[in-house]
Design a protein around this nucleic acid. Structure first.
Lengths: 248, 248
DNA sequence: CCGCGTATGTACGCTGAGGCACAGACGGGC
DNA sequence: GCCCGTCTGTGCCTCAGCGTACATACGCGG
């Protein structure tokens, strides 16, 4: 039972308002007869800021269930046309294509927040998936959620101003990150949001002057979640709503 | 065998370069032991331009496999913030949430192109789905494709100019439509692309002045596919590539 | 064949964001 | 404690697309 972590022993996350570090909400929602065999083939690994989990067209060797790390997925089109599509933290899973019977991905996945994740070898995962109907059931529902969230993001990106999108992005990141300030430069945020760095500097400046955040040289501290929520578009709440509706 | 149509009898679509009317490419790719039982519970229905297949949060009563009709899906956020997310024609299926075990959808689906589709009652479909592993296998792969296509669309919408996106949209529609000119007003295109009507009028004017299309009062004729392809962004080809890679 | 509704064309100012350039400011490493 | 690289701030011009308003043009129904 190498590296199984506290997940099976301390399912505290289910009652907490925020997602507790050390658990994965997707797995948490499984009956223990389903969760245990999966944990038995998983190992806890450390993911470091900037690690590339996979590149487009790469074969999926492992799937990941983040615990207190989080990872963002992009879809590279041309050289610098990157844009974050989804943020996967302890509420989700990386490698859903495998669940759908496709063993490679079109996405690029990069670690955004340092922390731990459960890692399962692709072959072992598929074997368990076959034997555990409850696992299938839940992961399929999760996939439906990610599709709806992706659809929301398309619309949000098209219609909502940068300030609102930045606020939303900071909130979503804050939800998934460990306490103690986010490691994010403006340049990086610009890539995530698909805009210029200067645009982020201006938008972030406006957030800071309203005392919603404080930042300095790549470290951002959220000071006022409520303020950020008011400034962000409704998509932040919608995104959570989509998740809770199907998986809550 | 009410309304089973020529699909089982005349699988001509498999050899044709363009998708032949009267077949559905997803079902076409199935072995006949799988296809036949599904066809036995399906009926052919006529879909008329403007029909609303479903609204957000509505229960999925039927799934659809378009034959020579096509349907677009939107994700309404606020009042008029609509934007097309996917175009489903004879290459696809409507109601994938059901395949994932979720019996409602966040999408709005509206018929874009008049024609026929196979319709299957949700309960009957689920029953067949359970009994037909090959069907599951193929539909799961299709879902993976739609996720990748959606991801592509997010990025395309963020980075590519209206002219290119309009060209892409016309090509995709043209691919799925029956021969003889598309029924699309500028106002409608504007909604699909998430821009103002005036923007479409200008962009469409540029396409027309280059003799790529001709249009008048809601009817658009594609004159020069190659020209349109050159004007559209690479996303048109990418979109087809994603499909063929997994389902071709 | 007239009228009205819908579709399309055009105009004007506005603004968010792009492209680019450069200046200051912090902070880790030597 | 200094240097240099990285991060952040600012300025300037450009431009695509928005909001709005109004003008024309086609075509169907009476």
């Amino acid at each position: 039972m190498r590296g199984v972590f506290g997940l099976a022993i301390l399912p505290i996350g289910r009652l907490a308002m925020t997602w507790a570090a050390g658990t994965n909400r997707l797995l948490d929602g499984l009956p223990s007869e389903t969760r245990e065999p999966l944990l038995a083939v998983s190992e806890t690994v450390e993911l470091t800021l900037g690690d590339v989990i996979w590149e487009p067209l790469q074969r999926i060797e492992n799937v990941y269930f983040p615990l207190d790390s989080f990872v963002s997925q992009m879809f590279p089109v041309d050289a610098h046309e990157n844009l974050e599509l989804s943020l996967v933290g302890s509420e989700g899973m990386l490698g859903v294509s495998l669940v759908l019977g496709v063993n490679s991905t079109m996405m690029q996945a990069i670690v955004q927040g340092h922390g731990t994740a459960l890692r399962i070898d692709a072959a072992a995962f598929l074997k368990e998936l076959e034997m555990l109907p409850e696992l299938r059931r839940r992961l399929y529902r999760y996939i439906d959620v990610t599709m709806a969230q992706l659809a929301l993001t398309v619309t949000c990106n098209s219609f909502h101003a940068l300030d609102a999108r930045l606020a939303r992005w900071l909130l979503m990141t804050h939800d998934r990150a460990q306490p103690g300030g986010l490691r994010l430069t403006h340049k990086f945020l610009a890539q995530m949001l698909g805009v210029r760095r200067v645009g982020v500097t201006n938008a972030a400046g406006r957030l800071q002057s309203r005392k919603f955040v404080r930042y300095s040289r790549g470290k951002i501290t959220v000071l006022d979640r409520v303020g950020l929520e008011q400034m962000s578009c409704s998509c932040y709440q919608s995104d959570k709503g989509i998740y809770n509706r199907v998986l809550g």
